[in-house]
Design a protein around this nucleic acid. Structure first.
Lengths: 188, 188
DNA sequence: GCACAAAAGCAAATAATTTGCGTTAGTGAA
DNA sequence: TTCACTAACGCAAATTATTTGCTTTTGTGC
């Protein structure tokens, strides 16, 4: 007897998942993180604690699961103007969201789970967003960095700073982007 | 009644700290991470669980504390040849250590604590190591990246990949370094 | 050596986690 | 529609972790 990875939509299992996720979100917004426990989540979700333990394993895993789903982007990057402008706007918003109290916490939750599936999910979300920007640039014939360059030199510094140091400001994000834009021959 | 940040060396408090840290290290090496509990650590360290709870607060904080102390570098970066060669050797070793099973776990432990002190400590350790390399280069008059450039474009990508993606290989580390070395005029 | 306080020990009380077993509710075939 | 099947849930007892009040120990400064 094991648990399905993706419960069939509409089923009881899916309803439980939604209720539990929602409870966690509400509680994260309403109370101190350290006070959140599985019995409390269960109570609010009208579910037994054992259901949560069986399904997620523990608090960290549950929080990681919720965090990953909240880190999933809602739509495509906005269209502002040139590909570069689109990238700048998107990256600044990305940095802002991740650096906020909530964002920072979501990142930690995702990373502190034993299972790295959720962390990889986040990475994939980001790559997907970047791929959209890259495709746009290509379509318009504008020079643009590769996905790898963007991950290594824009995303990575933003996230590293948020996790280990101080959050980067908007000017720093633009500086990072300037460094990887191919049209400029940079003498570093 | 509060606990001192830094127990006086030689005191009882310091001995307890050493014993507990040592137990945690032993256990991390010997058994599965998920099976480590505070009562077990306490037993091995010949200490009461309540001592650990009072002093560290919980398992995550304790693990973060131990992780941070293990992430502290043992000595200066090795002297290989040119400043760039020193940097390459140091960065490759850094990437290796962080990407290993143990290193990866230490990073997660440090990040998953509620308190960000330990994460910032790690960042400081790294900066200090880089500062040594920078000072060496300056002394010899060799062109060299700034600390900020190294943090953003060498350290950050390495850590991001380890945490969210796949560990970077030695060739990729060298590529990152090539990108920030100022002697080369790079057309990206 | 003595008084003081920080930190440890002990044990009872509380809270979280695990587990065995019975029940319920979707699913698919007849 | 009904019926059999099974994944997932609920319940409750057993276990294990955490918190807490109080006592005792041990280093420190007088």
């Amino acid at each position: 007897m094991g648990y399905r990875e993706n419960p069939r939509p509409g089923g009881r299992s899916a309803r439980v998942q939604v209720a539990v996720h929602q409870s966690v979100r509400d509680m994260l917004a309403a109370m101190d993180r350290a006070d959140i426990t599985i019995p409390l989540i269960a109570q609010r979700a009208k579910v037994t604690p054992s259901t949560i333990y069986r399904r997620w394993g523990g608090l960290q895993e549950l929080l990681a699961d919720v965090a990953a789903s909240r880190l999933q982007p809602e739509g495509e990057p906005a269209r502002i103007g040139s590909a570069r402008e689109d990238l700048e706007a998107w990256a600044e918003q990305y940095a802002d969201e991740m650096a906020s109290g909530v964002g920072r916490q979501l990142l930690r939750d995702v990373l502190s789970a034993a299972d790295c599936t959720n962390a990889e999910k986040c990475c994939t979300y980001t790559r997907t967003q970047l791929a959209v920007l890259i495709a746009r640039a290509e379509k318009r014939g504008e020079p643009f960095p590769t996905e790898e360059e963007l991950m290594d030199h824009v995303i990575s510094p933003i996230i590293y700073r948020i996790l280990f140091d101080r959050a980067p400001g908007p000017d720093h994000v633009r500086k990072l982007i300037a460094k990887v834009m191919p049209e400029s021959v940079v003498k570093t």
